[in-house]
Lab assay of single mutants.
Amino acid sequence: NNDALSPAIRRLLAEHNLDASAIKGTGVGGRLTREDVEKWLAKA
């Protein structure tokens, strides 16, 4: 759900042209964290 994304995470996803639904969030309530996105980028 994009409503649950912080502005910083939205920007990070946009910079790398990523789809938030492709990344499993580990934050509160399954929210994406910066670490989630960075780990996903490291694997890609």
Rank of each mutant, 00 (worst) to 15 (best):
A42H: 09
L13R: 00
L5F: 06
A22N: 11
N1I: 13
G27W: 04
R31V: 13
P7M: 13
A14Y: 12
A20W: 10
T26Q: 04
E38W: 15
A4I: 14
R34A: 10
L5A: 05
L12R: 04
R11L: 09
A14I: 08
W40D: 02
S21G: 10
D36G: 00
K43P: 04
K39R: 14
T33F: 01
G29W: 05
N1Y: 03
H16K: 03
D36Q: 02
R11A: 11
E35Y: 11
S6F: 05
L18W: 07
T33K: 04
S21L: 09
L32G: 00
T26G: 03
N1W: 04
I9Y: 05
G27K: 01
R10K: 10
N17I: 05
A42R: 12
P7G: 07
R10I: 13
E15L: 15
V37I: 15
G25L: 03
I9W: 07
W40S: 07
E38R: 11
R34W: 15
R31K: 13
G29D: 11
L13V: 03
D19Y: 05
A14T: 07
I23E: 01
D3S: 10
A8F: 12
V28W: 09
L41G: 00
S6E: 12
H16P: 00
A20Y: 08
E15I: 15
K43I: 12
G29S: 07
N2Y: 04
E35Q: 12
A20P: 14
R11Q: 13
T33E: 03
L18Y: 05
T26H: 04
E15A: 15
R10T: 06
A22Q: 15
E35A: 12
K24R: 12
D36N: 01
V28L: 12
K39Y: 14
R31N: 06
P7F: 05
A44W: 15
L32Q: 01
I9H: 04
I23S: 01
G29M: 09
A42K: 12
W40R: 05
R34N: 08
W40N: 03
A22G: 08
A20I: 12
L41T: 02
L18A: 07
V28P: 15
N17G: 15
A44C: 07
S6A: 09
L18R: 02
V37S: 00
R34M: 15
K39H: 10
P7L: 14
L12D: 01
T26F: 04
L32Y: 04
A14L: 11
D36A: 01
L41K: 01
R10G: 03
V37Y: 03
T26S: 11
I9L: 14
A22C: 09
H16C: 06
D3W: 01
A44S: 11
D36T: 01
A42L: 13
K43A: 13
A22K: 14
P7Y: 05
G27Q: 02
N2H: 14
A4H: 15
L12W: 10
L18C: 03
K24E: 11
L5K: 02
L18Q: 05
N1V: 14
S21F: 10
E35V: 07
N1T: 12
T33Y: 00
P7T: 09
D36K: 00
N1Q: 13
G27N: 02
V28S: 09
R11Y: 08
G27V: 02
K24V: 14
D3H: 11
E15R: 15
P7R: 11
A20N: 04
G27M: 03
S21K: 11
K39V: 08
E35K: 10
E38N: 07
L32E: 00
A8R: 13
L41M: 07
A8S: 11
I23Q: 02
W40F: 15
V37E: 00
K39E: 13
S6M: 06
K24W: 07
L13K: 00
D3N: 11
S21Y: 07
T26P: 02
E15S: 13
K24H: 10
A22D: 13
L41E: 01
D19P: 07
E35P: 05
L41F: 07
A44G: 07
D36R: 00
E15V: 14
G30D: 04
G30W: 00
T33N: 02
K39F: 13
D19H: 08
T33D: 01
R11E: 09
A14G: 06
N17R: 08
K24D: 06
A44Q: 14
G27P: 01
T26L: 05
R10A: 08
A20G: 08
E15Y: 15
K39D: 10
I23H: 02
R11D: 09
G27H: 02
T33S: 05
E15W: 15
A42N: 09
A14W: 14
L5P: 04
A44T: 11
V37R: 00
A8V: 10
A14Q: 11
E35I: 07
E35W: 13
L5M: 10
V28E: 14
H16G: 02
L32I: 14
E38P: 00
E15Q: 15
R10P: 00
L41Q: 01
A4E: 14
D3A: 10
N1F: 04
L12T: 03
T33R: 06
H16E: 01
V28N: 07
A8G: 08
W40Y: 15
S6P: 13
I9Q: 03
R11M: 08
R31D: 04
R11N: 08
V28H: 09
D36Y: 01
P7D: 14
N1H: 12
L12H: 06
N2V: 13
G29E: 06
K43F: 15
G27I: 02
I23C: 04
V28T: 11
L13H: 00
E38F: 15
L18I: 15
G25R: 04
K39G: 09
I9S: 01
D19S: 09
R34G: 05
N2G: 13
H16S: 02
I9R: 02
A20F: 09
T33P: 00
V37F: 05
L12V: 05
G25H: 04
L12I: 08
L32R: 02
H16T: 01
R11H: 11
S21T: 11
I23N: 01
D19A: 06
I23Y: 02
E35G: 08
K43Y: 14
E38Y: 15
V37Q: 00
R31Q: 12
D36W: 02
I23K: 01
R31Y: 07
L12G: 00
A4M: 13
E15F: 15
D36S: 00
R34F: 15
A8N: 07
D36L: 01
L41S: 01
L5Q: 06
D19E: 10
A8T: 10
K39I: 08
L12F: 09
D19V: 08
I9F: 06
A14R: 14
G25P: 06
A4N: 12
T33I: 03
S21D: 11
R10D: 04
K43V: 10
P7W: 04
D3P: 12
K24N: 09
T26A: 04
I9G: 00
V37P: 00
G30M: 03
G27Y: 02
S6N: 07
R31T: 14
T33G: 01
A4P: 13
N17H: 11
E38T: 09
A42M: 13
E35H: 08
L32K: 01
G30H: 04
L41W: 08
K24G: 06
N1K: 12
R31F: 07
E35S: 09
K43T: 11
L12N: 01
L13C: 03
V28R: 10
L13I: 06
I23A: 02
T26D: 02
L5Y: 05
G25S: 04
G29R: 06
A14E: 11
L32P: 04
S6L: 07
N17Q: 08
I23G: 01
T33C: 02
E38K: 10
R34V: 15
V37G: 00
A44N: 14
L5V: 10
R11G: 05
G27A: 04
R10L: 12
D3R: 11
G30F: 01
H16F: 07
K43H: 09
G30S: 04
D19F: 05
V37N: 00
S21I: 06
S6R: 05
A42F: 11
I23V: 06
R10F: 05
A8W: 11
A42I: 10
A20K: 05
A8D: 14
L5G: 03
A20D: 05
A14K: 13
L41R: 01
H16M: 06
W40V: 13
N17M: 07
S21E: 09
D19L: 10
G27R: 02
N2E: 14
G30Q: 05
A8L: 12
N17A: 07
D19T: 09
N2R: 11
N17P: 02
A22Y: 10
A20L: 10
R10Y: 06
N1D: 14
E38D: 08
A20H: 07
I9A: 04
V37L: 07
D19Q: 09
K43E: 12
R34H: 08
L41I: 14
S6W: 10
W40E: 09
V37M: 04
N17Y: 06
L12M: 08
K39T: 10
G30Y: 01
A22I: 13
W40G: 03
L18N: 02
N1P: 12
S6H: 09
